[in-house]
């Protein structure tokens, strides 16, 4: 199987380059990550992140044949050759397929991704109705792999100011939570020309999410909540 992989070590290389690899087929290779691990055995200078190898940790997000995805859940047989692998677009490259996610997690932290409730805590737990709990489906499952933000042109244009689809999905996860009492503050914080309204409804985020979530729907719901709050 033939691969073209983005290689760049800022300490050594003057500019990035694409390196070709030929990997003999192996019946053990099922997912792209299996092939990458074997390539790493051939060339130990090749760098990429991986951990859980089953689509839960989100570490091995990369651009696979022009589309962001997780190498560990990408079936190898479904890929057109040569398989072109690049780092997540719009993110600063640390080395090869490893990107710097500092800014991404700073946006995540900025939306305060935790329950805020100023009421005294109950003896056991804060209860929700089944309907209120259901409203969190499609929101809490995000694994923060950054496939969505790395495929969003609005995030490429303003990565330092636009929170991005992943951060906004997380923001809505707590806006929608019936146990959270900081909804008004959260909405007021997002009512900003950059933080939320850089989204141009391109919907690449929903298109590439490897967990089949819909950040664009979450963004629409935040806008709707802001509009309702302003009436």
């Amino acid at each position: 199987m033939r691969f073209h992989i983005y290689r760049f070590d800022p300490d050594v290389d003057p500019r990035p380059r694409m390196q070709a690899y030929d990997l003999p087929d192996s019946p053990a290779d099922r997912m792209l990550l299996d092939a990458l691990v074997r390539l790493k055995d051939m060339d130990d200078s090749l760098s990429f992140r991986r951990s859980c190898r089953e689509g839960v940790c989100g570490s091995d997000a990369m651009n696979i044949n022009g589309r962001n995805g997780l190498a560990c859940i990408q079936p190898l047989h479904a890929l057109k050759q040569p398989v072109v692998l690049r780092p997540l677009p719009g993110f600063p490259v640390i080395r090869d397929l490893i990107v710097d996610m500092t800014q991404f997690f700073a946006h995540y932290e900025a939306v305060r991704p935790y329950l805020i409730n100023d009421q005294p805590p109950p003896e056991r737990e804060r209860l929700q109705s089944p309907q209120a709990r259901d409203s969190l489906n499609g929101l809490y499952e995000c694994i923060l792999c950054a496939c969505c933000s790395g495929f969003c042109p609005s995030y490429w244009w303003n990565p330092d100011k636009f929170i991005g689809p992943a951060g906004l999905l997380q923001a809505y996860r707590f806006i929608a939570d019936s146990r959270d009492t900081a909804t008004a503050e959260r909405l007021a914080d997002l009512d900003d020309v950059y933080k939320l309204y850089r989204c141009r409804t391109i919907m690449n985020c929903t298109e590439v999410c490897p967990k089949q979530l819909s950040p664009s729907r979450a963004i629409e719901r935040i806008r709707l909540a802001l509009t309702k709050a302003s009436i």
Partner: peptide, 8 residues
């Protein structure tokens, strides 16, 4: 006239 108002 920036965030939500401009959008609306």
């Amino acid at each position: 006239f920036t965030g939500q108002r401009a959008w609306l």
